[in-house]
Write a protein that binds this DNA or RNA. Structure first.
Length: 502
RNA sequence: GGGCCGUUAGCUCAGUAGGUAGAGCACCGGAUUUUUAAUCCGGGGGUCGCAGGUUCGAUUCCUGCACGGCCCA
């Protein structure tokens, strides 16, 4: 990584040290740059700190922009107004060069450095809010040059791999992640206002469950056992429901050791919420309100948003369709009654390749292909086949399906909810069937074993419950028109490259 | 997993119908007291992703690999 510019900066740093400059441990500011910019008044004495973005020297005068968190402000070093000894620590006698402060700034302060300045607020001839520097403290030097000031980082790989550099040079990106914070905060507030409390459940588990997915595996030295990173929080939260909590939720990461693409990421942020005494109808109400609320939050009050060039209408009520009927309509027969071979034949005819094509997987893939992929506006897909939903309660009126819904928006599944299965006997049978199926279908996404502690918990009695899972990354992607899931993850992981140490 | 595309200076990008490369920003030296991508003069900087092959000669053509992007499954 040795670059000549890196060496130039190292050398400059060495010179500054020799001239007496030391990095301070703290810097007292009177304003943030954002705050000062927002409430700018002339003739104030201020102390601010930020990163140097630009330099425009004019001999006896130099302009520079400092970057705060979400705003920039101009500073100015001017001979005659800025004292000669403005650079904290710098021994002028020893330096022996020009005493013109503008020249000293030009020479020793580089683009990318973090500095603190003290001075008076003024407006320049063009009216730009500016701090006329009287004292400057070098807080830390940047040893690397910043990306091109005009275009910033364009290379998508660099944008993810060196996210910090991308964030330095791109204020919009910072605001984007600030909006992610607002989104998560409002999500918590939404559930809190409705009586839900947030509880944390284990990430490391001896048995994984609650979804169909391949897990990450690790090992505990203390417990002398293999552990898995959770693929869902469902079973843990249900144990807490049995324990007596009636409205609980958790926001956290789930881990799935599977492929990465624009909508899948191995550690994704999900919310699961459970309300005792509710059924999926109550949850649907809640979900509709939640999604609509988040759209209004992130669009500044609108009920529509743009995603991938499409206008999405999030006005309530959302459209409701039934899983089986909508699929039947497309394939021309009753998928629940059709023999397995017939389903497989349709998949083959449509060119859908299904690995380990169990009946459940065929339902899933066929539905996405014929229906899910074509959904644009928020739509509840209801009452899934029972094979697809081992944790959902059987439909109160219909055979072969469960009380479940998924929310689809722009072809993406963003919510999944059930009337939760609370019959321990039915639950045990269905989970055992999954484990059996794993052996037959050799499908590593199916569970290795039943979480017997979960069954025991259900045997103590879990009240009728409505449960909800939300893919928070995806919801935020949609509403902020981010087409790649990595664009909503502050520090995305990429495949490691060769050693890059300098 | 398959297909297509990309990888050239720190960054953004040109380019070579095969003769080892350019610009802008950034950097270095100089000029400049009101700029907003400041400007002007001068300068340094490259294993052209990696490894093979073809060739007198490869950054350029071919093959493989790595990393990334998009699409399909």
């Amino acid at each position: 990584m040795a670059s000549s510019e890196y060496e130039v900066r190292l050398k400059k740093l060495q010179t500054l040290k020799e001239l007496g400059v030391r990095y301070p441990y703290r810097y007292e500011t009177t304003h943030t740059i954002d705050g000062l910019k927002e409430n700018f008044k002339e003739g104030e004495r201020v102390r601010i700190a930020g990163r140097v973005l630009t330099k425009r020297p004019f001999g006896k005068l130099i302009f520079s922009h400092l970057r705060g968190e979400f705003a920039d402000i101009q500073i100015m070093v001017q001979k005659g107004k800025t004292p000669e000894d403005f650079f904290v620590g710098l021994n002028l006698e020893k330096y022996g060069g020009s005493r013109n402060p503008a020249k000293i700034y030009e020479k020793f302060v580089d683009i990318g450095d973090v500095i603190g300045v003290e001075g008076e607020t003024v407006r320049t001839k063009t009216g730009e809010p500016t701090v006329l520097v009287e004292r400057l403290t070098l807080l830390v030097k940047s040893l690397h040059p910043l990306p091109e000031k005009w275009h910033g980082i364009q290379d998508p790989e660099l944008k993810y791999r060196r996210r910090y550099v991308y964030l330095i040079s791109n204020l919009e990106a910072r605001k984007h992640f600030y909006r992610r914070f607002l989104f998560l905060r409002e999500t918590r507030r939404f559930f809190e206002e409705r009586g839900f409390i947030e509880l944390e459940t284990p990430i490391l588990q001896p048995i994984y469950g609650g979804a169909t997915a391949r897990p990450f595996k690790t090992y505990s030295n203390a417990l002398e056992t293999d552990l898995y990173l959770r693929i869902a929080t469902e079973l843990s939260l249900k144990k807490l429901l049995v324990g007596g909590f009636s409205r609980i939720y958790e926001i956290g990461k789930n881990f799935r050791n599977e492929g990465i693409d624009s909508t899948h990421y191995p550690e994704f942020t999900a919310l699961e919420a459970y309300a005792a005494y509710w059924d999926y109808g109550d949850v649907m109400e809640l979900t509709e309100e939640y999604f609509n609320t988040m759209v209004r939050l992130l669009t500044g009050g609108e009920e529509e948003f743009e995603y991938a060039g499409k206008r999405i209408n999030a006005r309530r009520p959302f459209k409701r369709i039934r899983f089986v009927e909508s699929l039947n309509e497309k394939v021309g027969f009753d998928v629940l009654k059709a023999p397995y071979e017939k389903l497989l034949a349709v998949a083959e005819r449509e060119g859908i390749k299904v690995k380990n094509p169990t009946r459940a997987k065929l339902y899933d893939k066929l539905f996405d292909h014929f229906v899910g992929d074509h959904i644009t506006d928020p739509t509840f897909v209801m009452d899934h086949p029972i094979e697809l939903s081992p944790l959902a309660r059987r439909h109160r009126e219909e055979e072969g399906v469960v009380e479940r819904f998924e929310l689809f928006v722009a072809g993406m599944e963003v919510a999944n909810a059930f009337s939760e299965l609370n019959d321990p006997i039915d639950q045990k049978e269905r989970l055992l069937k999954e484990v059996e199926l794993r052996k037959v279908a050799k499908d590593e996404e199916l569970p290795e074993d039943v979480d017997w502690d979960f069954i025991t918990a259900l045997e103590y009695g879990m009240p009728p419950t409505g449960g909800l899972g939300l893919g928070l990354d995806r919801i935020f992607m949609l509403i902020t028109n981010s087409e790649n899931i990595r664009d909503v993850i502050p520090l995305p992981t990429l495949r490691p490259k060769e050693d890059q140490s300098s």
